[in-house]
Amino acid sequence: MINVDDVEILLVEDNQNDIELTLRALKKHNLTNFVHVVKDGAEALAFIFCTGVYASRQLETGPKVVLLDLKLPKVDGLEVLRQIKSDERTKVIPVVVMTSSQEERDIVESYKLGVNSYIVKPVDFDKFIQCVAELGYYWVLCNKPPR
């Protein structure tokens, strides 16, 4: 378990398979060192806003990117997105929605809430690997967020 203050990628995903596949994809590009996985929306919010078990975490050291599934237990992904983007302290954190949903509604809603990117997870594993790798590469290594 890494120090929560060193987390660069917060992966919010309840599906164990997807978690494993995502981590495998990130690993291919050596991006797994600073990944933290939470399995529901509530935990995601706790992490982001440093509450509950994450109370000791420093909010300013927030992740470089949040990979967010939409369909989540407890608090769904759109709500998580809304809260992140409506708080002055967290709204600068890039959020990438990674979901199976191709619903127009979800896509539009996500962009309205200020999502930075919306990725439909390909069923094809090769495409999936490539997609996640590009994504991690871009947001973690290339992107220069304001500090």
Binding site: N17, T99, Q102, P122
Partner: peptide, 14 residues
Amino acid sequence: SHDLRSPLRAIDGF
């Protein structure tokens, strides 16, 4: 849209 595709991705992935 969401749930049926995940298993497929798992099958394909694994």
